[in-house]
Design a protein around this nucleic acid. Structure first.
Length: 500
RNA sequence: GCCGCUGUAGCUCAGCCGGUUAGAGCGCCUGAUUGUGGAUCAGGAGGUCCCCUGUUCGAACCAGGGCAGUGGUACCA
């Protein structure tokens, strides 16, 4: 016993899964990205809004949390007064709450944009986190599909502003009413409770077209499907003739929007709801045409389904179509980086009166990864501050004064505050990616000078020098200037690297 | 959740048929250089070989269970 070391409790330094730390370079890249999106949304006349990160669970619209699984999908916890709270899992539900709460005071239509983290208690994966950022724009109190069309065009506009070229992305649009029409045609009630399970299974199957192809969807609609890993997915168990109808619909895509509409019209002709959806898409098409949005930006796609619950009309998705290789040479597909649609029933849950609304959400975190892979953020200098070294600990006041002069001139700089010698200070400056360090020992001081060292030039010089002595004594990339000219001299060093 | 794969130093990984003291590269620290980062050289620190149980004279290695990570799939309001 006595031999064993006494164990002191040490918490393990680790991240919860699906969470990540964000460091300096990403923070600045992200903030410029957010600013670009904000400008776009603002330009289109949307108004900023912030809501808290958690809400009462019932306000988030799910019948959650239930007894057995209080955290299924959402992170929830109980308040002191035993009311359940949940972290928001999107920005739409809080918007609905906000609109319902302030309905009378708001201008109608009410147009708002909002960004923030959302949380989902789900399995994390590469590029899939349990905390991620969304950037939403929504129009509330807008009955016509002009609002939906506007959001599609806004999304397209924003994505291009972020540096994704035309042809590298596409907006895919569908309409839930058309999907409902298809369900009607095979005898499934698109609204009622009793067919809910079946309806979900079918819609989910359709949604997987891009990944599984026609054959996969067919399997899911019928008996079921076994994937490469051996995992088995139970199918909808539909008879062949019904499967054929759905497959015919799923295959109704085409390059031209008018051609897709033509296909839709014949496929759902006997469904009133379905035809309503077709008419809505026709109207959106004419708005797209009027604004010059061709099929290089917006297409109609029967396999777009989107979240299964609250959408009631047009639904849309922004998809990146380019491929990037990761460091191992594996292709990464980014797929959907945003989506949205019409949710006419959501606010009614609070108000009792139907308030038509539509919105679009950018998955900022995922889009950031894509932009990064495209090399859109390599522009930043990444240089660190100028470091004023401490040669003589009794003269901290003098050094502090130098830093003060630099800062007054708007030059990012700091006094070395660690406790180590000059060697460690140089290493520190190197690690901080400093362009320039300021050195004043007793020699320089006695001459009324400061020594500046250009670390970048120094690094270049070091490549040529093999001999230890000459490297050590040559003091490459260093020069003395009069103390009075400190600011100007530092500025000219920074200017060499465009970092001013 | 289900199926597969993986778990050895801070990181990337090697470790033969089970054999005693567990390795490399990179990184880190120290010195050569008491006033100089990045090259070079010399030295050093750092390990519950994921955990538990079992088999064995002997386990990083074999078996069973667990945990974690990862890939696919399901779910994703």
């Amino acid at each position: 016993m006595a031999k064993k070391k006494k164990k002191t409790f040490r918490p393990k330094a680790r991240l919860p899964k699906g969470m990540r730390d964000v460091e300096s370079a990403e923070i600045s890249a992200m903030s410029s990205m957010l600013e670009t999106i904000r400008e776009c949304y603002h330009l289109y006349g949307f108004e900023a809004l912030e809501t808290p990160v958690f809400e009462y669970s019932d306000a988030l619209g799910k019948s959650l949390p239930d007894q057995d699984r209080p955290n299924a999908g959402v992170f929830s916890f109980e308040d002191e007064d035993s009311q359940w709270l949940s972290l928001r899992y999107d920005l739409t539900a809080p918007l609905a709450r906000y609109v319902a709460q302030h309905y009378d005071a708001l201008p109608k239509p009410f147009r708002r944009y909002q960004t923030g983290y959302v949380w989902r208690n789900e399995k994390a994966g590469p590029g899939r986190y349990r905390q991620f950022r969304q950037f939403d724009a929504d129009s509330v109190g807008v009955p016509g599909v002009a609002a939906d069309a506007e959001l599609c065009m806004l999304a397209s506009h924003t994505i291009e502003k972020l540096g994704i070229g035309r042809g590298q992305y596409v907006m895919r649009v569908n309409n839930r009413k058309i999907l409902d029409g298809v369900l009607e045609m095979i005898g499934i009630d698109p609204k009622g409770e009793e067919d809910l399970e079946m309806r979900m299974t079918i819609l989910r199957s359709i949604d997987k077209l891009d990944r599984l192809g026609i054959v996969g969807v067919e399997a899911l609609l019928g008996e079921g499907r076994k994937d490469d890993s051996g995992a088995y997915t139970k199918g909808a168990g539909l008879p062949i003739e019904k499967i054929a109808k759905i497959i015919a619909f799923v295959g109704a895509g085409a390059d031209e929007r008018t051609a897709v509409l033509e296909n839709f019209r014949t496929l759902v002709s006997s469904s009133v709801t379905g035809m309503e959806g077709v008419v809505e898409l026709e109207e959106m098409d004419s708005l797209f045409v009027a604004s010059g949005f061709g099929t290089d930006r917006i297409v109609f796609d029967p396999s777009i389904v989107r979240g299964l619950d609250y959408y009631t009309g047009p639904v849309f998705e922004a998809e990146l179509t380019f491929e990037v290789k990761d460091e191992k040479g594996q292709p990464i597909r980014f797929g959907s980086v945003g989506g949205g649609g019409r949710y006419d029933g959501l606010i009614a849950k609070f108000k009792g009166i139907e308030v038509p609304a539509t919105g679009f959400s950018i998955g900022v975190s995922r889009l950031y990864t894509a932009l990064n892979a495209l090399g859109k953020f390599s522009g930043g200098s990444g240089y660190g501050p100028v470091i004023v070294m401490v040669m003589d600990k009794d003269r901290l006041g003098d050094y502090q004064k130098m830093v003060g002069r630099l800062r007054e001139a708007g030059i990012r700089s700091e006094l070395y505050l660690g406790g180590s010698g000059i060697r460690a200070q140089m290493k520190y400056a190197d690690k901080r990616k400093a362009v320039c360090v300021v050195i004043q020992g007793s020699d320089e001081q006695s001459r009324g000078e400061v020594m500046l060292k250009d670390l970048i030039e120094g690094m270049q010089k070091s490549e040529e020098i093999v001999d230890n002595k000459s490297w050590r004594e040559g003091r490459p990339a260093q020069f003395a200037v009069a103390e009075a000219e400190l600011v100007e001299a530092v500025r000219s060093v920074l200017a060499r690297y465009g970092d001013s």
